[in-house]
């Protein structure tokens, strides 16, 4: 039994079925990459796994820590140990990143505003962030800014990875984290993710392009086409895609995976 087990997952958006039976086992310590052309269902997979209300589950199960997480609210999934780095992080005006990170961390620790011993102290919080900010090449001023408000593309993605580093998930889904990133930002993000790799973290990288996989080496690569996995293997799958693109599955018109966004 894998640590995180997706079985025959089917999901739809606005009545249209997008995922048509996806199965995938992820163990902690592994890095999986899901690659696929536009419209193949990559975003639907990531959002369905995290419980976005706009995606409805038509069948299948996702077992994690003995529970079918499809029955849980997004916040419950997160507190169970899941994390989703969004392709398009959302702007929330009026709330500082520091407040956001602290509140999220406190939620993970079971602090509900009553038992102060569960809350992160200012000193611990500061210590916790210091190294992580450095790895991601972000300075303190970032913490007083509103959530993703006025952030550049690179800043948004780095902020996502910072949240991941603070919340220490066991299963992390990185949805198109490399899209819209300059090469420096990709390096910083990859560096931060690689530091977190280890026996306590399973990663699912969702990407159109192979570029990020040059920096974060996947153990397994799966090709998603039209809501189903059509090919799974080791890193050699990514190499094959780099040469031929998605043409063999009827997506010749798609840009080749190695093309930079």
């Amino acid at each position: 039994m894998a640590d995180f087990e997706i079985k025959d997952l089917r999901a739809s958006v606005e009545g249209r079925q997008i995922l048509k039976g996806v199965s995938l086992d992820i163990n902690k310590g592994e890095v999986h990459a899901v690659m696929g052309p536009n419209g193949s269902g990559k975003s639907t997979l990531s959002h369905t796994l995290m419980g976005h209300p706009g995606y409805s589950v038509d069948g299948g199960s996702v077992m994690f820590k003995g529970q079918n997480i499809l029955d849980l609210e997004p916040d419950e999934r997160a507190r169970l140990g899941m994390f989703l780095a969004l392709q398009y992080p959302v702007v929330v005006p009026g709330i500082s990143m520091a407040n956001f990170l602290r509140t999220a961390l406190n939620s993970h620790r079971g602090y509900d505003g009553k038992d102060k011993s569960k809350a992160v102290s200012p000193k611990e919080f500061r210590g916790l962030l210091k190294d992580k900010l450095k790895v991601l090449h972000m300075d303190d001023s970032f913490l007083s800014r509103y959530i993703n408000d006025g952030f550049s593309g690179g800043e948004k993605k780095r902020a996502e990875i910072l949240q991941m580093a603070v919340l220490k998930p066991e299963i992390a889904i990185l949805d198109e984290t490399d899209s819209g990133l300059d090469i420096d930002s990709i390096k910083f993000v990859a560096e931060a993710v690689n530091r977190m790799r280890g026996p306590n973290l399973g990663v699912l990288i969702i990407t159109h392009y192979t570029r990020i996989l040059e920096f974060i080496q996947p153990d397994f690569v799966h090709v998603l086409v039209d809501g189903k996995f059509v090919l799974s293997g080791g890193s050699e799958v990514a190499e094959r895609l780099e040469k031929t693109g998605y043409s063999e599955w009827g997506h010749a018109e798609e840009t080749t995976p190695q093309e930079v966004a």
Partner: peptide, 13 residues
């Protein structure tokens, strides 16, 4: 929904 999902996906009830 997007803002709510975003905050909840970080564990916030």
């Amino acid at each position: 929904d997007e803002q709510l999902f975003y905050l909840m996906s970080r564990g916030i009830p």
